[in-house]
């Protein structure tokens, strides 16, 4: 093994570690849902290449209303799935689609596009 090969090997391993860290361990834009008078937790989420915010913090036990506005036609984001809540909805382009549910369990959950490439996190706090 010559020097170049060693460099390539080490570089490759480092790059793999970076890729895994970057895509799986990263934290995104965080936002807590606001409260409406009737006690629902409401938040608007912009859908364009990803979710903004993509970390949503809500309280356990109170109804959550998330308004997803999809500002693109890119088919990657046409569907949204909250797997842990059994919710899956199409998001028509340039339209707000409301997702309702009540988290009964605290913890960190994910929501994602139909192909699970675009992702967000839902943090349910006690």
């Amino acid at each position: 093994m010559d020097t170049t090969e060693i460099i390539v090997l080490l570089g490759g391993v480092a790059l793999i570690a970076f890729v895994l860290w970057y895509f799986f361990a990263g934290e995104g834009v965080r936002a807590a849902a606001g409260l409406t008078a009737v006690g629902a937790q409401r938040l608007r989420v912009l859908v364009k290449g990803g979710y903004t915010p993509d970390v949503i913090v809500v309280k356990r036990g109170a109804p959550v209303e998330l308004d997803f506005y999809r500002d693109e036609t890119n088919s990657c984001t046409e569907q949204i799935v909250f797997g842990d809540f059994g919710i899956s909805r199409m998001l028509p382009a340039f339209k707000t689609t409301r997702i309702n549910f009540t988290p009964e369990r605290a913890g960190t959950f994910t929501f994602n596009c139909g192909m699970n490439m675009v992702r967000g996190k839902l943090i349910v706090e006690d």
Partner: peptide
């Protein structure tokens, strides 16, 4: 755009 969201797609 995907990269900025720490996502990887096609």
């Amino acid at each position: 755009t995907a990269l900025k969201h720490r996502a990887a797609d096609m």
